[in-house]
């Protein structure tokens, strides 16, 4: 355990630096006691996959088909912020609470059973590993229209060429899907929308957000500036509609 102590001593030093940066009271990184608390929970719950140093090389990492994130790189898929920006604290909190489970299977368990304070403490630890001093600004997601315009959605799906990776039927089998790699040069697959499970959750505004911001570290690019909000909503509904028949996970009660 010596190694862990030494490492965390360094990390704590950094946290003090970022606190000087004038982080607002909401940000758990500003509270050294919370960070210390988070490190204890991290050692208990996260080390097996993410490793003592947060480098994603924990002893259990090898059994997972998609590897645990190297948190030190500061690259996050499930952001409400534009591509290349840091996630918000809320984004990290939600990822930890929800866990990561997508069409390709479960990658990370949900930690919803931990007390809320513990999860915020873990957010502080993740930010510390990732050198996040300036959380990004979230995009704005307009309210979901009452009517799902699936015809428009299909047009936008076509125009933005989602099918080149996700396939015309949304099954993740487009012509580019065979050659996709993630940032660590590991094989990755475009999501099969007929499965109905999403890493960032299947709630419509989550799916809208993923399309808008992309999933950094994966081949999924940001599309936010390439369509209007109405078009993006129609597209979101269209994507969700692929999964509606095969699972009950989507509550498509807009109509």
């Amino acid at each position: 355990m010596r190694k862990i102590e030494a490492l965390f001593a360094v990390a704590a030093g950094l946290a003090t630096v970022s606190a000087v940066d004038g982080a607002n009271a909401q940000q758990p990184g500003a509270d050294p006691a919370l960070l210390e608390h988070g490190k204890e929970i991290y050692r208990r719950e996260c080390v097996a996959c993410h490793g003592v140093e947060g480098d994603g090389a924990g002893p259990g990492a090898y059994i997972l088909s998609q590897r645990p994130r190297n948190l030190q790189l500061g690259v996050f898929k499930l952001r409400s912020t534009p591509s290349g920006e840091n996630p918000t604290d809320q984004d990290l909190f939600e990822a930890i609470t929800r866990g990561v489970e997508g069409a390709a299977g479960a990658m990370m368990p949900s930690f919803a059973s931990l007390p809320e304070r513990d999860r915020w403490a873990l957010v502080a630890v993740v930010k510390d590993f990732a050198f996040i001093e300036d959380p990004g600004k979230p995009i704005s997601v307009p309210p979901r229209p009452a009517h799902a315009d699936l015809a428009l959605g299909a047009q936008v799906y076509d125009r933005l060429q989602c099918a080149s990776c996700h396939g015309a039927d949304g099954m993740g089998d487009g012509p580019s899907s065979l050659t996709l790699k993630d940032d660590q040069k590991r094989r990755i697959w475009a999501t099969d929308f007929t499965d109905g499970r999403y890493k960032g959750g299947a709630a419509p505004d989550e799916v809208y957000t993923r399309i808008f911001t992309g999933l950094d570290g994966s081949p999924m690019p940001a599309y936010g500036s390439k369509a209007t909000p109405d078009e993006l909503w129609a597209l979101t509904e269209y994507v969700l509609s692929f999964g509606a028949t095969s699972t009950d996970k989507i509550s498509g009660d807009t109509e």
Partner: peptide, 30 residues
């Protein structure tokens, strides 16, 4: 046709995504 410009910063032996933006149509500028 669709290109997505995916930039990575190389740090030692690691590479980190800097941004990944779709450009599905000709003439688009980011």
């Amino acid at each position: 046709l669709l290109h997505n410009i995916h930039a990575y910063e190389l740090i030692g032996r690691a590479r980190r995504t800097m941004f990944n933006i779709a450009q599905p149509q000709a003439g688009q500028v980011d």
